[in-house]
């Protein structure tokens, strides 16, 4: 089997294979453990029934949309009252309501956001307006 122009073809194929397998050698065979957002803040531990404004699975995937809706309601419609699916009433506020329980931004919000690649340029732009909580460390 004769390969013509092997001097160009072989390096070209090597470059292709290296680029195509980038994720394989970049991770070096060890998967980083998936994040475990911590739910052990004092406020949550004091709760009798540990329940967020939406069921957990929904909260995991749709919290950003909920926050966006809250923002629209509060900023544009001046409405701060949120009636949850289970009839409970909440004050629509990221800093005063969400962060009251989830006061551990770096161990809660950030763990998943960093893992899922939401950083620097594509960071969730909550904290461009809101003040990030001061965590006592």
């Amino acid at each position: 089997m004769k390969i013509y122009n092997a001097k160009l073809i072989i390096p070209g194929l090597l470059i292709f294979v290296v680029m195509a397998t980038f994720p394989i050698w970049y991770n070096k065979g060890t998967a980083a453990p998936p994040p475990e957002p911590k739910l052990n803040t004092p406020a949550i531990q004091r709760m009798a029934e540990k329940q967020c404004v939406l069921p957990k699975d929904q909260m995991r995937t749709e919290h950003m949309q909920l926050l966006n809706e809250w923002r629209t309601e509060v900023v544009r419609n001046g409405n701060r009252l949120y009636v949850a699916w289970d009839g409970k009433e909440y004050n629509m506020s990221l800093q005063n309501e969400c962060m009251r329980c989830h006061s551990n931004k770096s161990e809660f919000c950030d763990t998943c956001h960093v893992y899922a690649g939401l950083k620097s340029g594509s960071q969730p732009y909550c904290w461009t307006c809101h003040i990030a909580p001061k965590e006592n460390k």
Binding site: Y26, A31, G117
Partner: peptide, 9 residues
């Protein structure tokens, strides 16, 4: 690649 690489480049 953000799903296939950790840390994300």
């Amino acid at each position: 690649l953000r799903f296939f690489a950790e840390p994300v480049p």
